[in-house]
Design a protein around this nucleic acid. Structure first.
Length: 490
RNA sequence: CGGGGCGUGGCCCAGCCCGGUUAAGGCGCCUGUUUUGGGAACAGGAGAUCGCAGGUUCGAAUCCUGCCGCCCCGACCA
């Protein structure tokens, strides 16, 4: 743990990889592209999950669980969908092993070949819609608002811890509605939930918008997204919500009887966020000393480190620290008292900084005499001596302040790193500086592709609250209805 | 799939080019003593079929052949 992190300026990518491992969030497993999420990393994910799950429930959704395996034939029922996912599917072909007749270990039993191969779900639309077919008969069964927390597998060529792993954890909401308007409204509503979560819990304000046709989810009619901006100026798609039209209802023949006795196909949405949010969280706030966590998602909001010499002093100080811990806990603050006698205080300071704990309280003999403690902020690295009287209220204020200040700095980052340009030269310059580039585009996939080929920048979204005055495309000079947001992305 | 790198105690790695007693060092771990307000010091100790399989040789971590795995950079993608 003693090794220093590579600085962000030296190599942002290396910094990220080292941080994830050194802060004890995750590690590479022996399986290519798959990670082990370690307890501390998982604790953060659990916080995210708990908060999001509450938000889904508050918007009327319920949880269910669908199988990991999808019959191969299901996947091909929606043409665009299979097209989008076929290249990255793990396939189960056998169901049994046997002892190797040549003596070494086990081999796949060739007699145990599945009649129809099973696909390890890359997403669950197909198996869910195949199930919904039997759940939905009447308008009375609608809307159907179901979410599932699950793991999915996408056989990516190139992976990075949290940002893109072959297996990842996520939630996927799958809803069915009687009308198009209601489904569109649902898709947009869930995007708002994601944006709310990103800004108010992750302290990561995002840009909300709609994807262009080429960036759309395979099988969707519209993909709404939240786009975040990382410290290195690259964008990260942090969540998507899809209006699926009647595509899956038609592919799986899901119809309902309406009030008038007619039969119609239902309208669908799906929406998801994944452990990629962990990567977003890490890259958004952390610094060269390690992780910086927003209090609302920090598994530990305050760590208390006792400082002492000798057993007697230790007993006395730890007892006082325990009192403080109890007081903070009673005030609803997630607090950890680290009274581990085998680690020295200096070691603990460095360790909790690396792990991004927002506030640290240190208490030693001098504090005990004065009725004070040292309160250190992770985000600003400032330290103050504060009275133990009214400490819980003070800590609460500080935590709120950290949350607000992290949020504000990301707002500022987006503001200062969104460049409005009107010429191709200006566009290239802006891309060099990093961040979002607001520019006119002629609306064609060809131009979008050309720009991507030449600059690696993609249209992140057509932002909700962007500039809607018309102009001319930066690449072709053709008329453009409005500005869109470009960026180089993860 | 193309390019690069790496596989040596739990972790980081030296040694390999130029083969030769017991495979070096650091972190971590165990025991003890002194320490303790910013990653402690000293002493002792445990821990390795050098990725796998062949080959060359009196002798292989080191040379040769083949294979496997992972990481990084690109194309593809959440």
């Amino acid at each position: 743990m003693a090794s220093k992190l590579t600085s962000r300026d030296d190599d942002y990518s290396k910094w990220y990889n080292e941080l994830v491992v050194q802060a004890d969030l995750a590690q590479h497993s022996d399986v290519k592209g798959c990670m082990v999420i370690k307890p501390y990393g998982f604790a953060i994910w659990e916080r995210m999950k708990d908060v999001l799950d509450g938000m889904f429930k508050d918007t009327g959704h319920v949880n269910a669980y669908f199988p990991l395996f999808i019959p191969k034939s299901y996947l091909s029922k929606e043409a665009a969908h299979v097209e989008g996912f076929a290249k990255e599917c793990a396939v189960v072909t056998h169901y049994r092993l046997k002892n190797d007749p040549n003596g070494e270990g086990v081999v796949v039993d060739p007699d145990a070949r599945l009649e129809e191969e099973l696909i390890v779900r890359p997403t669950s639309e197909t198996i869910i819609w195949n199930t919904y077919k039997n759940w939905i008969q009447s308008y009375r069964d609608l809307p159907l608002l179901v979410n599932q927390w699950a793991n999915v597998v996408r056989w990516e060529m190139r992976t990075r811890l949290f940002l893109r792993t072959a297996e990842f954890l996520w939630q996927e909401g799958h809803t069915a509605h009687a009308t198009k308007d209601e489904a569109v409204e649902e898709a947009k509503k869930m995007l708002e939930v994601y944006a709310d979560f990103a800004e108010n819990y992750m302290a990561m304000p995002v840009v909300k918008g709609v994807k262009t046709e080429t960036e759309r989810f395979a099988g969707a009619e519209d993909t709404y997204c939240i786009e975040a901006l990382m410290q290195d100026g690259k964008a990260l798609q942090a969540g998507t919500s899809h209006f699926l039209g009647q595509n899956f209802a038609k592919a799986f023949d899901v119809t309902f009887a309406d009030k008038e006795g007619g039969k119609s196909h239902v309208w669908a949405t799906s929406w998801g966020v994944s452990t990629r949010l962990m990567g977003a969280l890490i890259m958004t706030h952390s610094d060269d000393q390690g992780l910086v966590l927003p209090p609302k998602l920090a598994p530990i909001e305050v760590v208390i480190v006792p400082i002492y010499k000798g057993q007697d002093q230790m007993d006395e100080i730890v007892a006082k620290c325990q009192e403080v811990a109890d007081e903070l806990k009673a005030a609803g603050i997630r607090v950890k008292l680290d009274d581990d006698d085998t680690k020295r205080s200096g070691w603990k300071f460095a360790e909790y900084e690396l792990k991004g704990v927002p506030l640290r309280i240190a208490m030693g003999p001098r504090d005990l005499a004065k009725g004070t403690c040292e309160l250190a902020r992770r985000d600003t690295k400032t330290k103050d001596f504060v009275s133990l009287d009214g400490l819980a209220a003070h800590v609460r204020t500080q935590l709120d302040d950290i949350q607000a200040s992290l949020t504000a700095s990301v707002h500022e980052r987006i503001k200062t790193h969104t460049h409005v340009v009107d010429t191709w030269e200006g566009f290239l310059e802006a891309l060099d500086k990093g961040g979002f580039v607001s520019a006119h585009w002629d609306g064609t996939a060809e131009t979008e592709e050309r720009i991507k080929q030449e600059t690696k920048a993609t249209i992140r979204c057509i932002p909700y609250d962007g500039d809607t005055t018309s102009g001319t495309c930066i690449k072709t000079g053709a008329p453009s209805a409005r500005r869109v947001l470009f960026a180089k992305a993860y």
